[in-house]
Design a protein around this nucleic acid. Sequence first.
DNA 1: AAATACCCTACCAAATTAGTATGGTATTAC
DNA 2: GTAATACCATACTAATTTGGTAGGGTATTT
Lengths: 155, 155
Amino acid sequence: MLRIGKLTDYGLVVLNQLALAGAVKQSTDDISQATGLTVATVRKVMKAIVDAGLVNAQRGSKGGYRIALAPAQISVLDVVQAFEGPISLTECSADDNQCEITDSCSLSSNWTGINDLLLRVLGDITLDDIRNPGVQDTLHHQIVDQLQRIQLVNL
Amino acid sequence: MLRIGKLTDYGLVVLNQLALAGAVKQSTDDISQATGLTVATVRKVMKAIVDAGLVNAQRGSKGGYRIALAPAQISVLDVVQAFEGPISLTECSADDNQCEITDSCSLSSNWTGINDLLLRVLGDITLDDIRNPGVQDTLHHQIVDQLQRIQLVNL
DNA sequence: AAATACCCTACCAAATTAGTATGGTATTAC
DNA sequence: GTAATACCATACTAATTTGGTAGGGTATTT
């Protein structure tokens, strides 16, 4: 299926809501109501995106959450990594490669390249892009430009 | 983690082996020995790639498997789909979208676009590309060209 | 007819993910 | 300074998915 986790998905939805609220602090309850997620689930989501530094939290009465960066500064990659850790399509493209046949497997180095490519694509898509339908055209160009500029080392 | 399944990975390894063997038919045992995978696992792998039409099987004595297409005709996407079905990063980008908040969620249409982009990237990388280190430079250009040509409708 | 080798289905175990509950801590307001 | 508010940390359970295995069935060749 190659699907991202539901929590990651929720994370984007919550971030979208926080972007909407702007400077107005949102409590767990507020977010729960606005998104339809249960309070318990929201809490779990918040932990991940607070830890990742994407959202600021303030405790106590009058506390709540506020988005920490501009939507254009938050990439889909940031969110995915906040919930699922580093992306590695295969065992051999992980940092702690534990694949036993890496030596004899000629595909290994190439997976790394594909993995990098995916990273860059997801890194180029920002929260702003997926919120605002108008920006989509430019998004495509950005990706192409980026790809041309970096000349993917391993790919 | 956003990782492809091990079986998918095995599939690529097996296809690599079959590409190596060329016209020479390989039995389940042959493949098992060449790849280090157990016979039972190889059987499971074979079913998927035979069903997908990537490999031809012949039964009976003197039977075995043979790759059905040229390595340049088999994309990583083909293999991923053979094992994991259609790619849909999120619930809402699946064919049978069951997400309950799709209507109220403004992100839905954009996920579809990201999903498409990933499809195209994986569809452009062929078995030949990941087998042959020399082709990697041209691969990058192919992807860029492709992206520019198609002008991603939804993205 | 016997040997070879693929085919199909079902089952079990392990790992991951989703969802929930509970008690703790910081901050504000009165 | 105490009570109310609201975030924090951890742990646990259940559901789902994935990986691995087994066993009996069918087609083809010699």
